[in-house]
Design a protein around this nucleic acid. Structure first.
Length: 287
DNA sequence: AAACATCGCAACCGCGGCTTG
DNA sequence: ACAAGCCGCGGTTGCGATGTT
């Protein structure tokens, strides 16, 4: 195995045309073949000089305006490339080195809750980037789960028919995982669910949030798509209270990000609690 | 020592969603 | 209300490093 702290950029002189196939960073249909290759912009590994230019510029001017940043910073890169380099490597807060067991555990639990929402997961793990976590998942954790007989996508046992398992096998890690998986969903059973109108601060409202709370946690507005997309909840769980833009709309004046953050915290804590609770019960049964 | 296989990471691509005019 | 532009995300690729034969 080689050291995880690979040299920053692979520092091959001049771009080797890393990454994928041809084509620029063209975005939507309206956006013409804009950046990178088509405009003679550089691609591939970053040099130390480029890193310095980018870091210096962002220190002076701050992040953002990625589209125009390269030109102003004197870089022959597209904005996307600059943003990626900054976010994943140059940002001072980026932590390097091995993922600790604690972090690994957190990633597993968050992935079980959120699925492949790497940016959301990364947001809960200080100093780690979505790219790093995604890579770590793909190269380590998914294989680890598979070797334990767990489907890394669903976090359920790979064997569709658990009845053929030897029930005396107490050590089955997938069994333990399945228990904790089940416990993860328990909090939602007692959730208060309903559609909520979120004030966007400009007088407009959004219907795309779900009102979620438990007996012991503050109710919070969570982007509905974030919950549904990963089967944290499904359509069937949504109560159809649909009131359109009148004064009866439920207004929640809070930042969805903060709410989602605390919501995740509560889920993670629930997860820990339920796992411990389950362990206690198991020990009790073993006696 | 050389050739081949595998691993791990940085970087790219394309798409969707948000913002702005 | 609509269109165009920009940003951010998740999936994928390419390549150097390392391990194995």
């Amino acid at each position: 195995m080689r050291s995880p702290s690979l040299s920053p950029s692979k520092q091959t002189p001049e771009a080797q045309g890393g990454g994928g196939a041809s084509g620029g960073c063209s975005s939507k249909k309206a956006e013409p073949m804009a950046c990178c290759s088509n405009l003679g912009l550089k691609r591939g590994p970053w040099t130390a000089e480029e890193d310095e230019l980018l870091a210096d510029y962002i220190k002076r001017e701050g992040e953002g305006r990625w589209r125009t940043l390269p030109k102003k910073a004197g870089l022959l890169r597209c904005g996307k490339s600059c943003r990626l380099r900054w976010m994943n490597y140059l940002r001072p807060s980026v932590k390097r080195g091995h993922i600790s067991p604690d972090e690994e555990d957190l990633i597993l639990r968050l992935h079980r809750l959120l699925g492949n929402r790497w940016s959301l997961i990364a947001g809960r793990i200080p100093g780690r980037t979505d790219n790093e976590i995604k890579n770590y998942w793909n190269t380590h954790l998914s294989k680890k789960l598979i070797s334990q007989g767990i489907d890394p996508k669903t976090h359920k046992p790979l064997n569709p028919n658990p009845s053929i398992h030897d029930h005396n096998k107490k050590d089955s890690s997938s069994e333990i995982h399945q228990q904790s998986l089940t416990s993860t969903y328990v909090p939602f059973a007692s959730c208060t669910l309903g559609n909520a109108m979120i004030s966007n601060g400009d007088g407009s409202n959004s219907h795309d949030h779900q009102f979620v709370g438990t007996d012991h946690h503050q109710q919070a507005a969570v982007p509905k798509k974030d919950l549904m997309r990963n089967n944290v909840i499904d359509e069937g769980m949504i109560m159809s209270i649909s009131k359109d833009g009148d004064d009866d709309d439920m207004m929640i004046n809070c930042c969805p990000d903060d709410a989602f953050s605390s919501f995740l915290n509560s889920l993670i804590n629930d997860d820990v609690f339920n796992n411990q609770h389950q362990d206690d019960q198991d020990q009790h049964l073993d006696i």
